[in-house]
Amino acid sequence: MSYMKTTLTGYAAYRGREGHWAFLLHRITGLGVVLFLAIHIVDTSFVYFAPQLYVDVINVYRSTIFGLGEIALVFCLFFHGVNGLRIAYLDLFAPKDWTIDKTRRSMLVALGISLVLWVPSAGWMLFNLLRHNYGLFGG
């Protein structure tokens, strides 16, 4: 437990800026995706094991709170992938660019690419959510 406290205070107090944020975001987005994935594999298996329960699963997926989580999930997957590519690229092809200045810039590039991919997807999912759950936009 003391490790956990040291870790959390360390994460908050360490002022590593972009490189530090890249590490934290990579870890948080990865954990977010794997948590969802464990649930998603089991709930999708209901299609075979308990088709009558799968209807309830779909209703949970359609709820507003889950819809917002889904929008976050899409960001997690995009960022984790883009940042993973950045790490693999630097390791394999440009190890000389593992400097504080260059990783600061490349982290912002990775974040920018993730946002470019995420914003249109998030907008469309939010539109669908508002249309189906709140009757907006002629839903």
């Binding site: 997926y61 999930l73 669908n128 189906h132």
Partner: peptide, 8 residues
């Protein structure tokens, strides 16, 4: 599944 088709 989540963007093009959508959960609904």
């Amino acid at each position: 599944q989540d963007v093009v088709v959508g959960v609904h």
